[in-house]
Design a protein around this nucleic acid. Structure first.
Lengths: 345, 345
DNA sequence: ACAAATTCTGGTATCGGTTTCATAAGTGGC
DNA sequence: GCCACTTATGAAACCGATACCAGAATTTGT
């Protein structure tokens, strides 16, 4: 088994020292003549530095870890797309680390990344409550952190978040302009900041239009789940048409789809009888009929930004400490339409 | 900045040599007394070997690479779940490698894993045509391979695949028992082996029941896409009810949902007027009304198996060379029902 | 023209593990 | 009680890159 060519072999062939070869590769002092000669030898031998050796020498891991919950995996494509983009663009090609799925809340993997592999940074993609202890542990271990989260209370690390409040306001405008005045909101768990912020945005947006959300039309479900949408749909069906909300905003798409699915099965027309708005723009949102009006998060951009902050922290040795807000994009599909005229038969 | 404790420090504290500490950790000769003493010191100092150094010394990368297409990302949760399971169970805790998404067919990342990082193995999750060149390149580079693919023509590496044919037959039985005799199949691209095998299974299953698939009821779409399902739905709507298939099998769920969505919008009842079966069991399959009857692949098990073969190849230094077939699970939901009675008004 | 600063280069130490080798101490067979 | 074999242990080499340092060559400044 022929050994792979190493830096010493290149040095020998180019009649220079290992140090010089290293400098040519990484950009230190080197005369034009030597640079050219070494480059030629490298090309001829097809030499590539061995990443592991380089990382070992530099005292790095050469990778970031990405942590996310199972249920968040809808976004993974986008987040990873953003990360890839950022890392391959850099001359220092760090490898995207790993990804953990914790069906059985298994923190050991993540902790082993920190303790044993000593990753150069951790990206938490939309950590839930259970992940908070992990985030704290990571912070204690002084790993560079980037959090894609609505939470502003994190005391260190970069925080990337979507502007839920603006999105809520935008939805308010959209619905108002369609003539809706009786609007309902079904949030996720009370502790979910996303849910809270989305609600507040909606409420403020409506308030600016002098529309009030009736307290009875504001609810919070214990979990983001289609069944919760279904439960609310059943409640909606029991209301007198003259009092039922003409538009319902649900804090995420799965709930919204559960809601629509149930109404649909009962012959309720969407948006004829009620308009529906979700959050997140999951793939299924387009597959449905009618297509779900929803709000998209710039996950790709957030993934890229997370990476960028970790990279600067790593290269410039300064702790990352920033907070960035990303606008959300309202995607109007067919599930929202003009409010039904009050005088129905 | 206090340096992390290294093996030398442990050795000093336990009054033994580095070699001995290493042996205690990795299981070489060591007297019971020494083992205990070293273990105690390790616990006291909270020592953990640095993965990068270990890998460097062993000449390994300590990670596998996972390659998949954007569009395949529906399965990522399951595949990764299986991989995680397998790796964390092993005492030799290899880190799950990375994941690439090639919106712009970017092979450089994967090739850099092989050339620079020198990954210990590559897992290709359902590689498409474009990935074939990558697979070939990887094979040429003599990296251990595990392919989650329907293709049996791969000459080396482990191949994990779903038993599409059996699934096709199972669907045939299911539909036959519901009374369906006029059945249609809409496949994916002609070159897609998955699609072919699914079709053949269905055809054979029906043949065994003496039911023939009319040639006009067998089509192959140029891509797996909801629009193709929609196009076929429009065709279906134009057929005379007495000649239109009473059940349609589509080669994947997105097409099936596109099909259902279009019919639904036109007031066609499912399964009252036509039964629908898909393949893959994507998350959206449950969100729809009616829920889509489909076939689930054991992605988790396949991910785990892929890992296992790579691990044995790595540890026992023998090239992996195997082929495993996994049964698929028919998930009956509401989109299939009794065939409509022939004598409709 | 000479000192100072800058550019260039090679030798050697270094990162933190594992592995080889030599040697020592037990262990068992006959 | 001697030889062969297994078990224990430490010293030193090693993996392949980068970093530091000293010295040589070149450029710059006055």
């Amino acid at each position: 088994m022929a050994r792979r060519t190493d830096i010493a072999e290149v040095a020998k062939n180019a009649r220079v020292s290992k140090s010089t070869v290293s400098r040519v590769i990484n950009g230190g002092y080197a005369s034009a003549e030597v640079k050219a000669r070494v480059a030629k030898v490298i090309a001829k031998l097809g030499y590539t530095p061995w990443t592991t050796a380089r990382n070992f020498s530099l005292g790095r891991a050469g990778c970031f870890g990405l942590v996310m919950e199972d249920s968040q995996s809808e976004w993974i494509t986008q987040i990873l797309g953003g990360i890839e983009e950022e890392l391959t663009a850099k001359h220092i090609s760090l490898l995207v680390g790993s990804l953990v799925l914790k069906g059985t809340y298994d923190a050991t993997t993540v902790l082993s990344w920190v303790r044993e592999r000593r990753v150069d940074g951790l990206i938490f993609a939309r950590p839930g409550r259970r992940e908070r202890t992990l985030v704290d542990a990571a912070r204690k271990a002084k790993v560079a952190l980037a959090l894609i989260a609505p939470d502003e209370s994190f005391k260190s690390g970069a925080v990337l978040r979507s502007n839920n409040a603006d999105a809520g306001r935008e939805i308010a405008d959209h619905l108002y302009e369609l003539g809706h005045r009786r609007i309902a909101f079904l949030g996720g768990p009370k502790e979910s900041l996303d849910s809270q912020q989305r609600f507040e945005g909606l409420e403020n947006g409506l308030k600016a239009r002098k529309v009030k959300l009736a307290a009875s039309n504001v609810m919070f479900a214990p979990r983001y789940h289609p069944e919760e949408g279904k439960a609310y749909a059943e409640k909606w069906l029991k209301m007198a048409r003259s009092r039922a909300p003409t538009a319902v905003v649900l804090a995420n798409d799965t709930m919204a789809l559960g809601f629509m699915r149930t109404l649909h099965a009962q012959g309720v027309g969407i948006p004829r009888d009620v308009s529906v708005v979700g959050f997140d723009d999951i793939p299924a949102a387009t597959l449905f009929w009618p297509g779900l009006t929803t709000v998209r998060q710039q996950m790709r951009a957030m993934g890229a930004a997370a990476c960028r902050t970790l990279l600067t922290a790593l290269l410039e040795e300064q702790p990352e400490r920033s907070s960035l807000e990303f606008p959300m994009d309202l995607i109007v599909r067919q599930s929202t339409g003009p409010a039904p005229t009050r005088s129905a038969p």
